[in-house]
Design a protein around this nucleic acid. Sequence first.
DNA 1: CCTGGGGGTAGGG
DNA 2: CCCTACCCCCAGG
Length: 279
Amino acid sequence: MGNPKQKWTAEEEEALRAGVAKHGTGKWKNIQRDPEFNPFLFSRSNIDLKDKWRNMSVSAPREKSRTLKPKAGSDAPAVPLSTPQTSALPAAVPIDASADPITDESARSSAPKYNALIFEAISALKEPNGSDVSAILSYIEQRLEVPPNFRRLLSSRLRRPGCNAKAVVHYIMILQVQNCFKVKEDASLGTKTPNPKQKDTRPKLLHSTNDVSPADTVQEAAAAAAGQVADAENKSFVAAEAVKEAERVSRMAEDTDSLLQLAKEIFERCSRGEIVVVA
DNA sequence: CCTGGGGGTAGGG
DNA sequence: CCCTACCCCCAGG
């Protein structure tokens, strides 16, 4: 009523990103207080930051190609990396790379009721091409009664961080394969460079806040692989992102070793090719 | 107090 | 019609 809606500016978003990169997710107050970001976020509350981050974490899932390996039989995700058809590298994929935050860290405990359903639906459907929101919705609707606004809830829930790890991973594996960032030569880092903060030529193990992470080996391997890449090319960005992704995945993994394998796979691919598709 | 999560509403395709 | 962006409220730590 008294708030005509204050759209977030690029500066604000960038500040938020930077803040999260520095302090980690969940330190909204710290970020907001930080004199470095305060000038940009002075008009935003920590709650606003949190909400905005939640929104930014929503990278619309895309489905198109049918090149996917369903691998029905085991829970082990089958490393759905981009298929060899990449021989001719995509012309000039827009960088859009601002999509990185999938943030979790909170995806370890308390699994909301819906997540189980979602996971169940996706598992049951197991469509080669992936299941979109509607499919999942249908599946669930046919099995039990859902509130009228369930679609939205589902829609949000699916792409929201913090969703049950397995569900997220599965979701990512199955239908969000070719989503996030793809890296092209120098085409990237040219426009807006949405990464003002994490531009380390040598990807180290970024802010290891306080997670124990069951993947020391992976991180090492990751660092190594990433290091090679960065050394060989100027793809430090990719490497850094990859490391990040690995940590993320590792953190999500609770008891699934295949996830760690996936992480390794990604890094190996990363060191060889250039096109790395992660969710 | 701060954070995370649910939900409502307005605007755009 | 559906989806996205912002905002508000509530419960837990």
